[in-house]
Design a protein around this nucleic acid. Structure first.
Lengths: 80, 80
DNA sequence: AGTACATTGGCCTATAAGTCACGTTTGCCA
DNA sequence: TGGCAAACGTGACTTATAGGCCAATGTACT
């Protein structure tokens, strides 16, 4: 699975555990609701600053906790 | 300190601990050498795919390990 | 002064960010 | 049931900026 899908799934996992809507998180993160949706569905390759807004302000979790998850344990495949 | 500077410092920390030059990491990550330098010095707001290239392929470390560090323990300030 | 590595800046193209209009799904309750 | 509302999903589009590329300069060590 690609990195943006992993991030999207992780965001969704945390968001639903907090019982928040995409709109609520988007509002706190100061991003557009549909942009949040695209991110959750792995459709956008977001920058660090945008990810920071979403996880630190939208979800109120640290980077450390966000990435402390099974899906972020792999190193990449060997390069071509 | 902003997120891109934290990332840059973390990259440099790991790179030097591996005794690699910026050029060597850039080569393995398949990014430009000068781009690597800008990133290390907090001058660029990189995308997740590019960060993945640098940490997973360039430094050969997992996202989990990369972000498991003191500097990534803070939640953001309250939004305006 | 030569070698190796790091830093900077400018230019160009690819792509992320931001926004919108519309469509779909889900659940509620008259 | 069917009509409504809340949440989620999607594609298209413009504007802002990431990232590639290159050339010059800085620093430091021998």
């Amino acid at each position: 699975m690609d990195i943006q899908s992993k991030i999207g799934e992780r965001i969704k996992e945390i968001r639903t555990s907090l019982n928040l809507t995409q709109e609520a998180v988007a509002y706190k993160a100061e991003v557009d609701r549909s942009f949040m949706n695209h991110v959750e569905n792995g459709k956008r390759n977001i920058s660090m600053r945008t990810l920071e807004k979403i996880i630190c302000y939208g979800l109120e979790i640290t980077f450390q906790d966000f990435f402390n998850h099974e899906s972020f344990k792999s190193k990449g495949r060997l390069r071509k």
